[in-house]
Simulated assay, not measured.
Amino acid sequence: MSTRDFRITVRGVFDGLSDAQRAELLARAAEHDVLQAAFTTEGHLSYDIAARTAFAFRFADTGEAEEDILTAAARAEAAAETWLTERGYGYKNLRSQAEDLSLAALGKRRRREAARGA
């Protein structure tokens, strides 16, 4: 059986942040910049707290079957909740979106490469 690569995005909104928490997030904003966003196994948090309270975690995971994407999404949501809770950040509207890269449509360049390889 082959390994499938999954990308999971967990989105939410910070809720009830204290002035100190907001200042802490602002101070660390450069390391959580949206332009630096990447899908990683440990999860990458991005936000722009100066503009709005929304955030996104990006996770990379793997599985062997198509159904494993549900487990991967649940793990990602749990990891995001843990990260937020451990730091005392309130949040709401947590939701996830997962993509199985083996089922993603091929772009023009990848279609050409696949045609050459066949």
Results as ranks from 00 to 15, higher is better:
T9M: 04
A27M: 06
A60W: 10
R75E: 10
R109S: 06
T41P: 07
T82E: 09
E31C: 10
A79R: 01
D100L: 07
Q21A: 10
L101P: 02
D15P: 08
L94G: 12
L17N: 15
V10I: 13
F6P: 00
R4L: 00
R109L: 00
F55K: 14
A38W: 07
S96M: 15
G63S: 03
D61P: 01
T9D: 08
T62Y: 04
V13P: 08
V34G: 05
S46T: 11
A105S: 10
F55M: 08
N93W: 09
S102Y: 01
D19V: 07
T3Y: 01
L70A: 13
A56I: 08
E64Y: 13
A118C: 08
F59C: 04
H44T: 10
L103C: 10
V34Q: 12
V34R: 13
T71H: 00
V10H: 02
A115H: 15
A105D: 07
L70F: 09
D33G: 12
T40Q: 02
F39G: 11
S46E: 14
R52A: 14
G12Q: 00
L45E: 07
V13H: 10
I49R: 03
E77G: 14
G16P: 02
A51V: 14
G90D: 04
E42R: 07
S96K: 04
D61N: 00
A74Q: 03
L35T: 12
D48H: 12
R11N: 14
A27Y: 02
Q36E: 15
L94C: 01
R95S: 09
K92V: 06
R111T: 05
R111I: 06
A76H: 07
F6I: 11
A30Y: 09
R95M: 13
D19P: 13
A118R: 06
L17R: 06
T82A: 15
Y91K: 15
I8L: 05
E24Q: 15
R110P: 01
G43Y: 13
Q97A: 14
A54E: 12
Q21S: 06
S102D: 00
A50F: 02
T62M: 02
E67A: 04
A73Q: 00
T62S: 04
R52P: 11
E42C: 09
A78W: 13
A56L: 01
G107L: 07
F55E: 00
A23W: 01
A60L: 06
S18M: 10
Q36S: 13
V13I: 10
A115Q: 09
